[in-house]
Design a binder for these strands. Structure first.
Length: 273
DNA sequence: AGACCCCTGGAC
DNA sequence: GTCCAGGGGTCT
């Protein structure tokens, strides 16, 4: 579920609640569900102070003392939030971190695809997935985007979804960006005109910025750190809009399969290559 | 590039 | 029942 705007929203919501807190207790409710959790995870976490909460791509990072970092990847149904310590954890809560203000950070994940791992100083950068992440889309100008596209093979949607090419975009924001840019998801990346590259760069930045402002997109599971739904789903132009009329023309939104994912597009605004 | 895997649950 | 889902890893 959570793509860049959702993880960013969660990080922003958690930051004021977590920074300055000390971890006083750890409960792992399903050890096998947190495979990469670091050695002696429980003992290492107790007494650590939280210094910062931020995001890189779709990864949420909780920075602790001495550059120890807790990294969460929410995958499809992961959620993070705070609850009063001592309260019964909800269904599918796999990790609880008790804090020194009588609240507990919970990590919940219905489908159990999400991961949480503790990295000592320097270890996060050594994690291949992290080390291989492409640039942050909101920190990349048009020239860099064009330069990174140069010589790339494959279809444009596949590239947008490739975290090594650009970090943080998933199925929703890839489809919404391609619609705004008027580009078919299956168009070969090396066939984009300079004009299309400029439009796509702007579309990606606009869509992500607007989605963050809306608190993310809630299809079903995603909630902010405070447990609220996002609002960007109300402005979807193509994602989840199959068979509905395009907002911009008289076309009917269709789906196709690109890069192994259902891809929604308007056949008139985004003509087939 | 594609198939299939991890897992749960909602829609049909 | 079957198919599908905001992700990513692995294997052919």
């Amino acid at each position: 579920m959570p793509e860049l705007p959702e993880v960013e929203t969660i990080a922003r919501g958690l930051r004021p609640l977590l920074v300055g807190r000390t971890i006083t207790g750890v409960s792992i409710l399903g050890p096998h569900l947190i495979p990469k959790r670091g050695k002696n995870f429980e003992e290492q976490m107790i007494g650590k102070r939280i210094l910062d909460v931020y995001r890189r791509g779709k990864i949420l990072i909780v920075e602790l003392d001495n550059m120890n970092r807790l990294a969460f990847h929410l995958r499809m149904t992961g959620r993070l939030g705070l609850m009063p310590s001592g309260e019964k954890p909800g269904q599918h809560v796999h990790l609880l971190l008790a804090l020194d203000d009588q609240t507990s950070l919970f990590f919940q994940d219905q489908r159990k695809f999400g991961t949480c791992a503790l990295f000592a100083a320097g270890e996060l950068e050594a994690w291949p997935f992290y080390a291989g992440l492409g640039p942050e889309p909101l920190a990349m100008d048009k020239e860099e985007f064009a330069a990174r596209l140069k010589g790339k093979r494959g279809r444009i949607k596949g590239l947008l979804l490739d975290q090594r090419f650009i970090a943080g975009i998933g199925n929703i924001y890839a489809d919404e960006s391609l619609f705004r840019a008027g580009i078919h998801p299956a168009l070969a990346a090396d066939r984009l005109t300079p004009g299309q590259i400029g439009k796509l760069h702007a579309a990606v930045q606009d869509v992500l910025t607007e989605a963050i402002a809306a608190g993310g997109s809630s299809i079903r599971d995603y909630r902010t750190a405070a447990g609220l739904a996002g609002a960007f789903q109300e402005t979807f132009q193509v994602y989840g809009c199959k068979s509905l009329p395009c907002h911009r023309c008289k076309g009917i939104v269709q789906t196709t399969r690109v890069a192994g994912r259902t891809s929604s597009f308007c056949p008139r605004c985004q003509p087939r290559p």
